[in-house]
Amino acid sequence: MPLLTQQIQAEDSYSLVASLDNVRNLSTILKAIHFQDHATCFATKNGIKVTVEKAKCVQANAFIQAGIFQEFVVREESLTFRINLTVLLDCLSIFGSSPTPGTLTALRMCYQGYGYPLMLFLEEGGVVTVCKINTQEPEETLDFDFCSTNVINKIILQSEGLREAFSELDMTSEVLQITMSPDKPYFRLSTFGNAGSAHLDYPKDSDLMEAFHCNQTQVNRYKISLLKPSTKALVLSCKVSIRTDNRGFLSLQYMIRNEDGQISFVEYYCCPDEEVPESES
């Protein structure tokens, strides 16, 4: 097969080579952050981080550790490139988005370096698809400077506890208000929509609550349109960690278990909605 020999000959010239027996272990994680067309990819020997941003206010990161791949080689310190995520996902799911029992799509992904396209070789049942996706100039990504030392409040919930709440958010409300407090109401989600206000309280001793570390009462508002995309990660995840720091920045960390039982993380950062002073409104 000329295709395969071509690939093997060129193997040394690639800065990144990664193979995966089940492409869905990658595509599922990427779908969790697919709310914009473009993504920036960073690869190091530890794995790949894919970042998507919107409006300079929200950032989503998917971490795919090297261990998820059956083979993972990075020949440089680090690699950065920007790619069209929509196209990448279409390519990864070329043999169908829903899994057919008993068939797996294998993937081999190669990247030669700056200015070169990302090559994908996908195989299912003897049928091979080769994709050559052009990469773009990487753009600087936001640094939210979210330090665990500055974290004021932290809650770990089983995702099912948040899933329903997020899928039924009152989208006529401009903001989602999150209250975290060592005292009642402990953890509260509020919306203020056309049909009135809604408050959803989670008791501290609920079965869904895996950890509760709240030191100080914080009430912060986040644009609902910025948080809504994180629902994609929420539905895939088993646990979610909700943290806020001293500036009111929000971090949502989703733990996602793939079909082989391995764990990956997807993280959303969101900045709080600016308070508009009374005099200006």
Partner: peptide, 12 residues
């Protein structure tokens, strides 16, 4: 397209 080339090979 200018973004991507995709080829699926069926054989035999």
């Amino acid at each position: 397209t200018e973004l991507v080339c995709v080829t699926t090979h069926f054989k035999d």
